[in-house]
Computed example of a mutant assay.
Amino acid sequence: MALILNLETSTKNCSVSISQNGEQLVLCELTTDGYQHAERLHQFIQWAIEGCDYTLNDLDAVAVGKGPGSYTGLRIGVSAAKGICFALGIPLLSMNSLDILAHCEKKEDFDLIIPMTDARRKEVYTITFDANLDEITPTEAKILDENSFQEYADKKILFVGDGAEKAQEILSLPKAKFYSDVLPSAKMMGSAMEQKFQQKQFEDVAYFEPFYLKDFVAGK
C-alpha cells in the first residue's frame, strides 16, 4: 500500500492529488487559459498535504503526467516531481497524459477510446485504446481531416479531451461520442500509479524527461 503524490500539468489544468492504495485522498486543481502552473503547482502540493493526515516525509513516491502537451506545463510538473523525489529519496513514477485521459469516468461501454488533446490548428495529440485500455496505435501528433479514423466507422468510439471538440467538427462517425470538456487530471491517476508502484516501474530521477513528442519551436 503506497502513499503517492500525483501531478498532472500537461494542459491548462494544473492538478494535484494524493492517493493511497489507489484511492484518492485529496485533490487540488484549477483550469485556466492563462496556464498558471508556475504560480499554483507548489501551492496545490502544500494544500494537498495539509488536506490529509500526512506530511511530505510520509510519501512513498511521486507520479507525474509526462505528456505530450504544453512544453512549459510539462517542464514545471516534471521539475517539481523530480525535485521532491530527489530531496526525499523516493521513487518517481510517470504516466502518458493521454493514458490518464483514457481513465476518465465513462457513462457507457465503447469499442474504442481515443483520447486527444489540442496541439493547435487542426492538429491533436492522440492515441487509440481498445475497451480494455490496451494500446492499438501509438501516441502521435495527428492533423485531422474528414478521412481520419474512418477505418473505425463501424465501431462505437469515445473521443475524450479538449481535442475532441475539433474532431467533432471535422469527423463524420455515426457511432462516435465526444467528451470535449475533460482534461487530464491527477484524480484519474491513483489506481494506475499504485499498480506501477507495486510492479516497481520506476523512472530514473536523474535522467527522466517529459514526453514532448514534437520539437519545441520558439515564436516571436
Rank of each mutant, 00 (worst) to 15 (best):
residue 152 Y to G: 00
residue 17 S to Y: 06
residue 190 G to T: 04
residue 193 M to T: 06
residue 95 M to C: 15
residue 59 L to H: 03
residue 198 Q to C: 13
residue 87 A to T: 15
residue 59 L to Y: 01
residue 147 N to T: 14
residue 42 H to Y: 12
residue 156 K to C: 02
residue 219 G to L: 14
residue 13 N to A: 06
residue 119 A to V: 03
residue 6 N to P: 00
residue 172 S to N: 15
residue 72 T to M: 11
residue 5 L to R: 00
residue 129 F to H: 01
residue 46 Q to A: 14
residue 210 P to V: 12
residue 135 E to C: 13
residue 204 D to V: 08
residue 74 L to V: 09
residue 145 D to W: 10
residue 57 N to R: 11
residue 166 K to G: 00
residue 101 L to Y: 04
residue 11 T to D: 02
residue 84 I to D: 08
residue 97 S to T: 12
residue 216 F to S: 12
residue 33 D to P: 11
residue 92 L to G: 04
residue 99 D to Q: 15
residue 75 R to N: 09
residue 36 Q to E: 13
residue 94 S to V: 10
residue 151 E to A: 09
residue 130 D to K: 00
residue 178 F to C: 06
residue 150 Q to G: 01
residue 137 T to Q: 09
residue 202 F to R: 07
residue 120 R to S: 08
residue 67 G to M: 08
residue 113 I to C: 04
residue 162 D to S: 08
residue 85 C to F: 05
residue 154 D to L: 07
residue 216 F to M: 13
residue 188 M to A: 11
residue 184 P to G: 03
residue 124 V to Y: 03
residue 134 D to V: 01
residue 131 A to R: 15
residue 114 I to V: 11
residue 205 V to A: 04
residue 195 Q to S: 14
residue 99 D to L: 11
residue 78 V to A: 03
residue 215 D to Y: 07
residue 26 V to L: 05
residue 135 E to Q: 14
residue 109 D to K: 10
residue 177 K to Q: 15
residue 104 C to V: 04
residue 158 L to K: 06
residue 21 N to T: 11
residue 201 Q to A: 15
residue 86 F to C: 12
residue 163 G to R: 01
residue 142 K to S: 02
residue 68 P to N: 01
residue 216 F to C: 14
residue 206 A to C: 13
residue 81 A to V: 09
residue 17 S to A: 12
residue 116 M to N: 10
residue 85 C to S: 09
residue 77 G to C: 06
residue 142 K to R: 11
residue 143 I to T: 15
residue 148 S to A: 12
residue 51 G to D: 06
residue 162 D to V: 02
residue 28 C to P: 06
residue 203 E to H: 04
residue 47 W to H: 15
residue 39 E to A: 12
residue 214 K to T: 07
